[in-house]
Structure formats: structure tokens, C-alpha cells
Nucleic acid binder design. Structure first.
Lengths: 241, 241
DNA sequence: CGGTTGGTTGAGCTGTATCAAAAGATGTGG
DNA sequence: CCACATCTTTTGATACAGCTCAACCAACCG
């Protein structure tokens, strides 16, 4: 029994996020067909290769982006050379929300990416005119706020293995439900990026991965896949903050 | 030479946050007088005593809140009994943005608080009708997203003293510019709350405070005030991630 | 194939969590 | 206004987890 999903014509912008209230539930898709077409008319579709630097922290901001396909990382570099990864961004995520005319994080394509690019002024003007569409954006940004707070909780854990367990369940939730095999989680980012996200060194990530394997929870297949062997125990570890 | 601030009639809801673009700069105040009056008509003003639990994580959500006066903390409790403080909320901040009909964090008044309370349906309906006002909310939530990411960076530091230094500058920026004496930072929350926010134990916060005093950067006056003795060196430490 | 980038493993050190206890605040009721 | 009970903060001693530095290994690329 396969559930029939609402039709999303790719090649057209979309957003994804949990709404405020329950009764518009299931409604992960935030834009109507008409709204997506309106966005298409003011946006431009771009294909970016993996590793492409999209913009740099502090640079003057001109565009807002929405991801159609692929993964982007948002990060900051510090004086001591370390990077904090503020977040990984996926299909139907939004990024490039500037502050006083400047981007606050740097962003870089992790995989090859298809994005929609909007001029800030045009997009904001459209949003102010169309309250329903703007509401979709409001819900979306609120959703990202909650995601950011969840990550903050993740980072508050003391144990490396638990953090990595949380990260894996996080990745599965992002890509997972629809990804072919739920137990095989793609990890297209480097260990160093993962470390920057979960707040560890890459050595500690490596050791934590080893520990999860030895405890029989996960099997890492090459650098870019993790097979979840014991979902129940992994979930328990991830939740046991 | 005292700068004249735009008149904000208290007793009326307000929002604060950095806009996307520069040219509406200085514009920390996001709502016009007319918009605030409209909000007043659908909102209710409440006075809450310090320590009042406003709502609990997971509870069915009915209201959205805006702070007029005072400090609120937003937090989550974990299985092991620890608390993560997701954020402290100040005058003109927004909270209670639910997910699928339920609150995601618990919130509690730190000081006595004056809040405006809006029914979610009424507020969202008003926002959809008034694109300009909704835009103010969009900017506001985006602002909180950035704050959350900054906190995540704070928590990524290894050294306790540096984290506390960042926290103090953070508090000064929130309350500071207008607070009578810029160097005297009020700390109305407990050490335990600070610990939950910066990702340390309360013992470590206490020791970090001692260290900042011994290094001559800050003088703690009672539990609820910190006097910044050497702003330049404190700022340097806070920035030296 | 060498070169480059990314990942693993090991040894030792540092700093924060933890456990325990004392010392300060704060608030209450007599 | 004091004495008591409670809550918060400070201080101390110890253990351990993750960081650092360093070397080695694997994959990927022209």
C-alpha cells in the first residue's frame, strides 16, 4: 500500500516545514501550485557543482535561495581556524536570510545542487502583497528556528557517541522517509563537516563511529553511507540525553 | 547629547529585530503605531509574577506571546534531569510559536513579566490579511533564528571562561545600550539557568566567573549583577573563539 | 601512478563533569 | 527583628572524556 503524495512538479520552488497548528497537518508542503508558479516568475533556477561556495559570511546580500535538489552547508569560520556548521540544508529549505544587508553565514554546496535564486527586494515585495504566501515563509523560518534549537540540544550532550547517534537520526529524518532504503543513510558531507555540526573534532567523530559499530548499532559503508543495524537501540541512545 | 528615540507607547505590543536589508537601518522597531493598535485589539495584556510557568513543552498550543517588559526563559528538560535553556527572551521578543498544535519548549518567567497574549488563529488570520505586519513577524522570527545560531557557536567553544564572556556580552547587548549603566549588566537568572544556556554545569559557571574576576575583566556584584571592568579585554576574549 | 585530500589510529594532556560538603542568600513565621 | 529552613552558590578533590599532536592509511584524481 503506497501512500499517494501530493504532486510536486519539480522545476518549481517549494518549501517544507511543520505548521503552527495541527489541523493543517500532513501539510509539509507549504506552497500551492499557483504560488510556486508566481515564485518561478521572479526566480532563477541555477545548477551548482559540489563544493561551490555560494556566498561568504559578511558579504553584501542580494539574493535569497531555495533548494530544489541537493545539500548545502551553512557555516562560520572563527579566528582560531575552526568551523562551526550552523546547519545542513536540504531540498525545499530556504537560505540566505541576510541581516542589515549582509549574509551572516557562509554557504557551500555539499553535493551538486539545484537552487532557485530570488532578488531580496523582489521576493519581499511579492511576500508583502501575498499574505498567504508570506505565511508559508513565516512557517518555514519558524521551522528552521526549531531545527536550530534542536541542534543546540544535541551539542549540549557530553558523550561523542550519543551526539553522533543524534546526528544520524537527524539525517535519516531529513532524507529518510522517502529515501529508497530507510536504514541506509547517506552522509555526503565530510567527517570534518559532521564534526563542525555536532561540536566535536573529526578524530572524535571517527572514534564515535567506531564505537557505534562495535556496539552493533550502525555499520559504516565507505565514507558516505551508514547502515542502521539496530534502529531501536540507536533511537534509545539518541534520545537518552 | 542624548539621542531621541522613536516614541514607543508602552502598553502596546512591539517587536524588535534586525531587518534583511540595510536601508531600513536603525529600524530595530518593526511595527508602526497603527499596527500596534491593531494587535492590541486582538491581544490581551497579562502580568505574570517571577517564576511563573507559562506553558509546558508538549502542551497543546493556543496562544502566541509578545513580551512588553521583563525576561522569560525557554527551556527543555531531558531524561537525565538536565535542562537546556534554548534562550532568554526580552522586551519585544516573541514566543510560543507552536509546531503542529503543540509547544516545543517550556517557558517560565524569570522576572516579573508583562506580556501580550494572542490567540493563534486570530493572530495568523490578521497576519495573512496584513502583509506589512506579517513581514514584521517574518523579520522577527528570522532574527531569532540568527540568535539561536549564535548561541550554537557560543556553545561550541571549549573554554568555560570564554563561554561566560560571550554570555555577558550577549546580555549586555540585549539589555545594555539603553540600560542606565552600560558596564553594569543585570543577571536576573540563576547560575543554573546560565549553565543551561551556555552548556556547562553550574559549578563550572561559578569557577569561570571566579576566573574572569581574577583576570580583572569583570567584577560580580551579588548574584544578580556583573560589572564589566575591562570591556576591551572582555570583548577580545569573547571574540577569540 | 604520484599527489592530494580525507580518514583512521595512537599516546598523552587538559579541562570540565562529578561527587561531596560548606558557606551565603532568601524568605517565613514567631 | 531574629532564628530557622530552604535554596543557591562556592569551593575542593578526583576521574574521565575528548582535544591535541603526530603518524599512518585509504580513496580519489588527473
Amino acid at each position: 500500500m503506497k501512500k499517494i503524495l501530493p504532486f510536486i512538479s519539480h522545476q518549481v520552488p517549494a518549501l517544507r516545514g511543520a505548521p503552527f497548528l495541527a489541523h493543517n497537518a500532513g501539510g509539509a508542503i507549504l506552497l500551492t501550485d499557483r504560488q510556486r508558479q508566481q515564485l518561478t516568475s521572479i526566480g532563477m533556477r541555477l545548477r551548482l557543482p559540489a563544493r561551490k561556495l555560494i556566498y561568504r559570511e559578511g558579504a553584501p546580500a542580494q539574493w535569497i535561495f531555495a533548494i530544489d535538489e541537493g545539500i548545502v552547508k551553512s557555516y562560520r569560520e572563527h579566528a582560531n581556524g575552526k568551523r562551526t556548521v550552523a546547519g545542513f540544508l536540504f531540498s525545499r529549505d530556504l537560505f540566505g536570510l541576510a541581516e542589515r544587508g549582509h549574509y551572516v553565514n557562509s554557504t557551500q554546496a555539499v553535493t551538486a545542487v539545484e537552487v532557485y535564486r530570488f532578488a531580496i527586494e523582489e521576493l519581499t515585495a511579492l511576500l508583502k502583497r501575498d499574505g498567504e504566501m508570506q505565511f508559508a515563509f513565516l512557517v518555514k523560518v519558524t521551522h528552521e528556528l526549531r531545527q536550530s534549537q534542536r541542534r543546540a540540544i544535541l551539542v549540549n550532550r557530553r558523550d561523542a557517541a550519543g551526539r553522533l547517534a543524534m546526528f544520524l537520526t537527524f539525517m535519516r529524518n531529513q532524507l529518510g522517509p522517502d529515501a529508497a532504503d530507510g536504514a541506509r543513510v547517506p552522509l555526503p558531507m565530510t567527517r570534518s563537516d559532521i564534526a563542525g555540526f555536532v561540536g566535536l573534532t573529526l578524530e572524535s567523530v571517527s572514534r564515535a563511529a567506531k564505537e557505534l559499530e562495535q556496539r552493533g548499532l550502525v555499520k559504516f559503508e565507505g565514507r558516505s553511507f551508514a547502515r542502521i543495524v539496530d534502529p531501536a537501540r540507536l533511537a534509545r541512545l539518541a534520545a537518552a540525553v
